[in-house]
Simulated scan of single mutants.
Amino acid sequence: MTDVTLRPITGPDEIDLFNRLPYTLNHELADDLAEGRRQPGWMWLALRDGRPVARVAWWGRGGEPTPSLLDVLDLDDDVPDATEVASALYEKAAAAVLPPGATPPEYGRYLPADWRDDPGPVHTRMSVLEKAGARLTVERLRLEWRPDAGVPAADPRLSFRAFADHDELIALTARALDGTLDAHSRADLAELSPHDAAVKHYEEEFATFSSPREWWRVATVDGEPVGFVLPARNSYHAIIAYLGVLPEHRGKGHVDGILAEGTRVLAEQDVPRVRAATDVGNTPMAAAFARAGYVTFERAINMAWN
């Protein structure tokens, strides 16, 4: 590795330089900088003769002093020593960006739906972080519903209402975590009680949405809760943020009606699309999304430091 400069970008004026390496998130980076979800000091380049050989970038919610996700790690696959350069870049950037001694934030990367037909580039990028101590934790489906698919049919067995209060949201989330197939939730439950894991879900995700809480729905049968769905908007899209069926009511087909209600709530906002995600291993949820007209447009992998 010779004649390479490793440094953060100087500001928004270098977004075009940063985006010379292609990735599906490139079109969002300028807005992220403007909205405070990224900072120039969190976006690093490896330059040789003024050309990017590799880059890394972290993301955080606006106003956070440290990032919560590593979501950009790219390299020029035509440069023979690009993997070595990318490793050196990550090591130097992480030392500058992350608090000393802290566990690095999880890495998430979006992938083409057919990425396994040519896995080499993905494995190359994974190898950079494996060298730094990260390990693959899960592969996820990224799903999308569009209005031309039609709003899924309602389930006449189900009625819907708002959550009574914050405590009910936490209590139902804790109950829905029993038997979960979601890898992140299972990791949380290895260290936390269901109640504390539910609180973590709320504080790190649910509470960050600016969309109305009135969109959130509890599904009931004869007045008894059987599940719930949280339609929402994040900083980029309308999403199905969370869907849970309570353990004692699983296997009765309620998931279809609950997902239909969440989709209907967002469709009434005239959104161009609704996004969702689920683990590849969560085959029941993936099947429910498919029945509701959601299609897999990308996949994603997550890596974490244990």
Rank of each mutant, 00 (worst) to 15 (best):
T66Q: 08
N26I: 00
M285R: 14
R233C: 05
A300H: 13
R140G: 00
G50I: 11
R291C: 13
G281M: 12
V79E: 15
R37H: 14
V56N: 02
D148I: 05
A82P: 04
V4W: 02
M43Y: 02
K252N: 14
F160W: 09
V280H: 09
D148N: 06
D49S: 11
T83I: 15
T5I: 12
A176I: 11
R175F: 06
L136Y: 06
G50V: 07
G223P: 08
A149L: 01
V226H: 00
R116A: 13
R233H: 15
V138P: 02
D71F: 06
K131F: 14
D77H: 15
A292T: 11
I258D: 07
E139T: 05
Y107M: 09
N306V: 06
Y294K: 02
S68V: 13
D77I: 13
M43E: 12
T180N: 03
A241P: 07
G62S: 15
A267W: 05
T173Y: 05
A207D: 10
E14R: 04
E91N: 02
P8G: 12
K92Y: 05
P65E: 03
D270M: 10
G108K: 14
A287Y: 14
L70V: 06
W216I: 02
V199N: 00
V53I: 12
V229Q: 00
R250F: 04
F228W: 13
E64Q: 15
T2G: 12
I15Q: 01
R161D: 09
A187V: 00
L89D: 00
R273W: 09
L33Q: 05
P225G: 07
M285H: 13
E14N: 04
Q39H: 06
E224M: 01
N26Y: 03
I170A: 09
S87G: 15
F160C: 12
E106T: 13
K252V: 00
R161V: 09
K200M: 10
G11F: 12
E28K: 15
A54H: 06
G41P: 00
T208W: 03
L246H: 10
V72W: 03
P212R: 06
A219D: 00
R157Y: 06
T2C: 10
P65D: 07
T208E: 11
P104A: 04
T180H: 07
T137Q: 02
T263Q: 06
F289Y: 15
L136D: 04
W42E: 01
V151K: 11
